[in-house]
Design a protein around this nucleic acid. Structure first.
Length: 307
DNA sequence: ACCCAGGGTGACG
DNA sequence: CGTCACCATGGG
């Protein structure tokens, strides 16, 4: 991997295993929005996002990933956000070499776990509870429009994720009005606690179990949401969120579709190793791709029947 | 109408 | 410790 900043743009070349589109749409982050591709430049995908308070446009071609705008001293921050300093070739080799997991790799190559801001992850994944990715994205977007800083970006407007103080100042009614449902009071309470000075960053260097316990003290945060926050924003690559998709996939991949006991599932996760959380993202991608493929087939079958 | 979605809380054993 | 009804909301 090599990079340069030219014309206010970060270019990252000689990339091994990075698929921007998969990473932006796989459900780990909720604020990546597809935008118009520059086909003349050979762009395969292009998105806008607000990363660490800055509105950016990221695109991928055969040759490079670009991020605009980017000052010279911001390059490493974006490289860190995309997790480009990690050896995903080694991780994908681990998946390929594991007979329980190898089925997950084809189609999922290039997945990476982004390093998001902890507060954004905390609030976003409280919203994610018993919800679906599309609706989560909508609620988060409306939350940003409601309380986030408006950023002028190439003629359009993007909104930053709101500060803890800004969300803490919202009423439960305002959050209900944007579709947050029964999670509204959890969001306000949590934002208030962060605004009062709770330092999420201290969880980064804690042992996984201790950090998880800390997060469980926030209302609206259970084991799954805690693991999402730890994996997606605090560098805990062995935090393994178990949602309905992963639960089903683990049953199939590890237990021949016979639901295991809790301890057995824990053991299976531990056996995946210290990158289990990152590998979880491949399993999740695979599980959803299978489901999408089935839905597509059914749709095609319906079309044939109708015609 | 029912079921599902990157589940959690509180009550009750 | 585990189980379970209940929780807003929108799409299939």
């Amino acid at each position: 991997m090599v990079y340069e900043v030219k014309n206010n743009t970060l270019y990252i070349r000689e990339l091994d295993r990075f698929d921007l589109e998969k990473c932006a749409t796989c459900g780990q982050a909720f604020r990546w929005s597809e935008c118009e591709k520059n086909e003349a430049a050979g762009e395969l995908s292009a998105f806008t996002c607000v990363i660490r308070g800055k509105a950016v446009r990221a695109a991928q071609t055969q040759a490079y990933v670009s991020v605009f705008p980017c000052m010279a001293d911001e390059a490493l921050s974006y490289i860190d956000y995309f997790d480009l300093g990690r050896d995903y070739a080694a991780i994908e080799e681990m998946i390929a070499a594991d007979p329980r997991l190898s089925v997950c790799l084809p189609g999922a190559e290039g997945i990476r776990v982004f390093n998001q801001e902890p507060f954004e992850a905390l609030i976003s994944f409280i919203i994610s509870a018993n919800n679906n990715i599309k609706r989560i994205s909508g609620i988060v977007e409306r939350l940003c429009r409601l309380a986030g800083e408006k950023l002028d970006f190439m003629g359009s407007e993007l909104y930053a994720f709101p500060s803890p103080k800004a969300i803490a100042a919202l009423s439960v009614e305002q959050l209900t009005a944007i579709g947050a449902g029964y999670r509204a009071p959890y969001i306000v309470e949590t934002a208030q606690r962060i605004a009062e000075g709770y330092e999420l960053e201290t969880l980064r260097d804690m042992p996984l179990d201790k950090a998880r316990k800390e997060l469980l003290s926030f209302k609206g945060v259970g084991s799954k949401v805690a693991d999402c926050i730890l994996l997606f924003s605090l560098g805990h690559t062995d935090a393994f969120p178990i949602d309905v998709w992963i639960d089903r996939a683990m049953n199939e991949l590890f237990f021949d579709s016979v639901p295991p006991k809790k301890a057995e599932l824990r053991e299976a996760v531990a056996s995946i190793g210290r990158y289990s959380g990152i590998i979880q993202q491949y399993i999740f991608f695979h599980a959803r791709a299978v489901q999408l493929g089935k839905a597509k087939k059914e749709e095609e079958a319906r079309g044939k029947n109708a015609g």
